[in-house]
C-alpha cells in the first residue's frame, strides 16, 4: 500500500517537473518521444557482451538532465529502486556463462602504473580472467540504467498528456489515447478513494497485525469497483451535459519546427555515430599510445 502511495507521490512530483520551463520542456513532445525511442532502440541493439560502447550513451541523459534542470539524485534513486528485477535476471549470467572473455595481463597494468609514477613492486605477475557472464551482467545493468533513465527523462520533461498528444499525432488510435487520458486523470481520484477506505479500516483494526482477511478484502475491492462504476456513469452524464456525442477532440497547437528538427536529428546522428564507432576504445588506444610513446 505504502508502495503505491509513494508511486502516487512520484507521479505528482514528476508532473511538477514536467511543468518546469526549459528549452527541452518547450520542445514539441514528438521530438522528445522520437528521440527517446531511437535512443532506447540503439542502446538495446548492442551485442550482449558490449560495455565500452554503451558508455558514451550516458551523454544523452546527462545533457538532458542538465538542460532540463532535473534533480539527478531523485532520478537515480528511482532507478535504484527498480534495479532488483534486472539484477535478478542478470545475476544468472555469471553463474551460467563461465567462459573467459577478457584476460587482463597484470604486467601491462604494472607497466602502466610504473609509467605513471608508482615505483614499488606491485607483486606477483599473472593474469585476471573475467568470464563472459560478468561482462554481460554488467552490460545488462548499464542498459537498464540507460533505458529506464531515458523513459524517466521523457516523462519528466514532457508530461503525460503531451506524450499522449505526440502519440496521437504519430497515429496511435484515438480510443486508446482517450483511454490513456482518462486513466491518468482518474488514477489520482481513485487511489485517493482507495486509500481512504484502507485507512478507515485500519483505524478500526485494533490488533497490531493489520492483516486483512480475504472476505473483507473482497468487499472493499467490490465496493470500490461499484463506486468506480457509479462514478463512470456520473462522468458520462457530465460529458453528455456538455454536448458529448461519442467523440473527444482537443485543441492543441504543437509545432515541429527547426529546434525540434535540430534536437531529433542532432541526437540521432550522435547516437548513430556512437553506435558505429567504438569511441571509448579509440580514446583508450590514443591515451595508451600517448603514454607509452
Amino acid at each position: 500500500m505504502s508502495n503505491l502511495q509513494n508511486n502516487l507521490f512520484d507521479i505528482f512530483y514528476i508532473d511538477t517537473l514536467a511543468c518546469r520551463q526549459s528549452w527541452i520542456h518547450s520542445l514539441d513532445p514528438r521530438a522528445k518521444v522520437l528521440t527517446t525511442l531511437i535512443f532506447v532502440g540503439i542502446v538495446v541493439s548492442f551485442d550482449k557482451y558490449e560495455i565500452a560502447m554503451l558508455i558514451p550513451f550516458f551523454i544523452y541523459p546527462a545533457v538532458a538532465i542538465a538542460l532540463a534542470d532535473l534533480p539527478f539524485v531523485y532520478l537515480a534513486k528511482k532507478m535504484l529502486l527498480l534495479l532488483p528485477f534486472a539484477f535478478f535476471i542478470g545475476i544468472f549470467n555469471p553463474l551460467m556463462d563461465n567462459k573467459t572473455l577478457i584476460t587482463f595481463d597484470l604486467k601491462d597494468i604494472v607497466d602502466l602504473m610504473e609509467f605513471i609514477g608508482f615505483k614499488e613492486n606491485i607483486g606477483k605477475m599473472g593474469t585476471i580472467d573475467i568470464s563472459g557472464g560478468w561482462v554481460s551482467f554488467l552490460s545488462i545493468m548499464i542498459r537498464f540504467c540507460l533505458t529506464v533513465g531515458a523513459a524517466l527523462i521523457l516523462i519528466s520533461t514532457t508530461g503525460f498528456d503531451a506524450v499522449c498528444l505526440a502519440l496521437q499525432r504519430f497515429g496511435v488510435p484515438r480510443p486508446f489515447i482517450v483511454q490513456l487520458m482518462f486513466l491518468y486523470r482518474y488514477m489520482f481520484v481513485l487511489i485517493d478513494e482507495a486509500s481512504r477506505m484502507v485507512r478507515a479500516r485500519s483505524l478500526r483494526t485494533f490488533d497490531n497485525s493489520n492483516q486483512m482477511r480475504f472476505g473483507i478484502f473482497i468487499s472493499m475491492v467490490g465496493q470500490l469497483l461499484l463506486r468506480t462504476m457509479d462514478r463512470a456513469q456520473r462522468i458520462h452524464l457530465a460529458m453528455c451535459c456538455r454536448g458529448f456525442e461519442g467523440d473527444i477532440q482537443m485543441l492543441r497547437a504543437i509545432n515541429f519546427g527547426v529546434p525540434e528538427t535540430l534536437f531529433t536529428a542532432g541526437w540521432t546522428s550522435l547516437f548513430v555515430i556512437l553506435r558505429l564507432y567504438n569511441i571509448p576504445v579509440k580514446l583508450g588506444m590514443m591515451i595508451e599510445n600517448l603514454l607509452l610513446s
Binding site: 499522449c164 487520458m181 491518468y184 486523470r185 462514478r231 456520473r234 452524464l237 460529458m239 482537443m250
Partner: peptide, 9 residues
C-alpha cells in the same frame, strides 16, 4: 463532485 466534471488532462 468536481472530479466527475473535470475529466480532461
Amino acid at each position: 463532485d468536481p472530479d466527475d466534471q473535470l475529466f480532461m488532462p
